[in-house]
Design a protein around this nucleic acid. Structure first.
Lengths: 235, 235
DNA sequence: AGGGCATTGTGCGCTAGCGCACATACTGTG
DNA sequence: CACAGTATGTGCGCTAGCGCACAATGCCCT
């Protein structure tokens, strides 16, 4: 991990910037802790800050008719929340929900706009990431259409694991149901199946991945596809 | 419709450019006819041209495990095919398939890259459209998850109608099945239901919309949402 | 006119996931 | 330590859509 001024740069997007660019950006960045359940954006509302997650995790949700939700994107250390600003859109079209408590760096919209205009490397990074996110949304769309809940569930857990870099995290089944767009009971069933296969342990909102390899095998191919995409986008 | 040199500018993205910008761009644009079934891009392959559809219609498809396909975006006169170039990505991540025979203007990738760098208005347009397309993909993802085939079918027909500006067009049920990610038989059933309700007539690849209002009512709310989004993006 | 192909229609058993309702844990709080 | 609230487990009937197989109908070409 890149170290600047003895502080590790947790976000890989920031870490990929040239030293000087990063230093300048840093002046406008404020370290924050994002906590589970926090809502960063609502659809139709102005974006006040952009966020560069460290070990925190943010989900992008689209809302359908009243209460139903569906996750279309997951943003961790590899990305930025508020990417539509790079496209000149200052209003979110999705809900951004903190899924994993953790660190992040944030910057006010106005400042970000200025910095973005000035920094070509930042532009380059963000445009690339926009594309990766688009591909992620695309893949998720197909996944939601074709794959069974158990596999999607496994994929979700693996993706979360990669982003928070931990085998344990908080998460209720109700919540996961909203992510996958299925009933809570559907998650219960899938989770129990995974538990019986000794891939995870699940208890009252605390989940633990016991067998990473096994869980990966249990998830649909989308896991690997999205992973490869993001790795490719970094080069 | 904007008229330049007595030629109507069918693509609204081009039409929205300042006259001078448009004139310059025109030198690199080549009018082509896109025909039903033509594949413009394949996933993983380099993008050779960008396309500005006139009354043609192009679908973006994501491929899942071998043969299954799913439409994630639909591009007509309101957009451009090959938008990832605006993000610096020269390789398509989806299949781009001509869904409706018609006119388009195209430009070679290298040339487009140069023009894009030079023209701020073009950049602005394309970034906005990128966002709109992302929103469309998002909405489609949710739609595929939550709505029944008949409503999605109706939405698809309405969206097509808007883009080709005609109440009749070619389309087999097999094909529509690939778009919606369902079996052909599922489409047959939905189409027959719509036909019985006198909303459409359907015969051997030739479809006709009989009752636009009725069909709109039969489609899910996603139709209106996506429509509003694109209209919003034009202002 | 007729053969062949593309397209659409139908039937049948099956499964994943839904909606609803209720039972059973665990856990933090006063 | 009881209680309330949150989280998980289970059961049941139902439906949309699946996979498979085959029939029927129109269209094009020779």
């Amino acid at each position: 991990m890149l170290i600047v001024n003895r502080v590790p740069v947790a976000n890989s997007m920031l870490a990929a910037l040239p030293r000087r660019e990063y230093q300048r950006l840093l002046a406008g960045l404020e370290p924050v802790t994002l906590s589970f359940g926090e809502v960063l954006y609502e659809p139709g509302e102005p974006i006040r800050h952009v966020y560069f997650p460290g070990n925190s995790l943010v989900s992008l949700l689209t809302l359908v008719e009243d209460h139903l939700a569906l996750e279309v994107g997951m943003i961790g250390r590899e990305g930025m929340v508020g990417i539509s600003l790079a496209l000149g859109i200052e209003e979110s079209s999705v809900r951004a929900l903190v899924q994993g408590t953790g660190t992040a760096m944030r910057m006010k919209t106005a400042r970000f706009r200025r910095e973005f205009r000035k920094s070509l490397p930042l532009q380059r990074e963000l445009y690339r990431y926009t594309h990766a996110l688009m591909a992620q949304v695309t893949q998720t769309a197909a996944c939601n259409r074709f794959h069974v809940v158990e596999a999607r569930c496994a994929r979700w857990l693996m993706m979360t694991r990669d982003r928070v870099r931990s085998d344990r995290f908080r998460l209720t089944q109700e919540f996961l149901g909203h992510m996958l767009g299925v009933r809570r009971v559907g998650v219960t069933k899938a989770a129990r199946a995974l538990q019986r296969r000794k891939l995870i342990s699940y208890s009252r909102g605390h989940i633990r991945i016991l067998d990473q390899k096994g869980l990966e095998a249990a998830s649909c191919s989308c896991y690997e596809i999205v992973k490869d995409m993001h790795e490719q986008a970094q080069t």
